[in-house]
Amino acid sequence: MPAKNRRTRALLRKTAKIIVIIVVAVIPAIPIWIMYAWLIAQSFSARVIQGILPSGFTLSNWRFLWTRVSTVYEAGLSIWPYVANTLYLALGVAGLVVLVSSMAGYALSRMEFKGRMKMMEFIIALHAFPSVILLIALFILLNKMGLYGRGYVTLTGIMIVKAGLEIPMASWIIKGFFDNIPWDLEWAALVDGCSRWKVWRYIILPLVLPGIGAVSIFSFLSGWSEFLLVYTYVSNEKLYTLPVLIYYLISDLESMPQWGLLTAMGLFYTLPVLIFFSTSQKLLLRIYVGGVKG
């Protein structure tokens, strides 16, 4: 009898646990999953019943990948120049962030200098500021520096601004990786016959590589998805990035509804995010767990 009792109680506890997990983690995610499912279904369907139910299979919504499509926004619109713009911005941001934050992270971790602690606190605070409030100041700054309204130069300006916003947090992440490399390890390499450069190349770099990888993915994605800065500062339509393009296409919906095309483009735009997060989950987790455990 008591044994059975205990078993029931264990079962109950287990069920309760599952219910809690469902309520806390699964249910809130359901609407998001439904929306994604709908996007995917929509992008492959020929007609839409009642504006909601997709029906009939077609690839024609994805035709923007291989032909020009006509939209209200632009008659013969090809997506590839916009992809190139977005890539230019995202890769640039990633490159700048990695370059600066790996050096800054090294300095923060390895070098003793006055006000180091204060500086690190300040960096954290900096990251908490929303970039919206900087829009006006940035506008003036970009203008004065001649980075406004000058084609790719403007996009480069945005790249620098965006990288600047990402660098503090990235430096922190990379600092954590440097912190995990004891001096002994560097010294051992020196004694084993390394020059300073070889210590960096064979010991330090491999150990901070996960951090650099994670930081470059994060900053790439943040550049890829940047909307506000591009929307505000880029006046030349040829230089729009994908999020801004999609935004304008959505505004045109009322006059010329092309649901299928838009959903396909939207999915195409999220592709890098999906790819990165599905391939580098382990890496991303390590940032939070932290550590160079072999």
């Binding site: 004891p182 002994d184 390890l185 010294w187 051992a188 390499a189 010991i203 491999p206 150990l207 160079v292 455990k293 072999g294």
Partner: peptide, 9 residues
């Protein structure tokens, strides 16, 4: 070394 300092990777 006191910590052995083996290369973890």
């Amino acid at each position: 070394f006191q910590s052995y300092a083996l290369y973890p990777h």
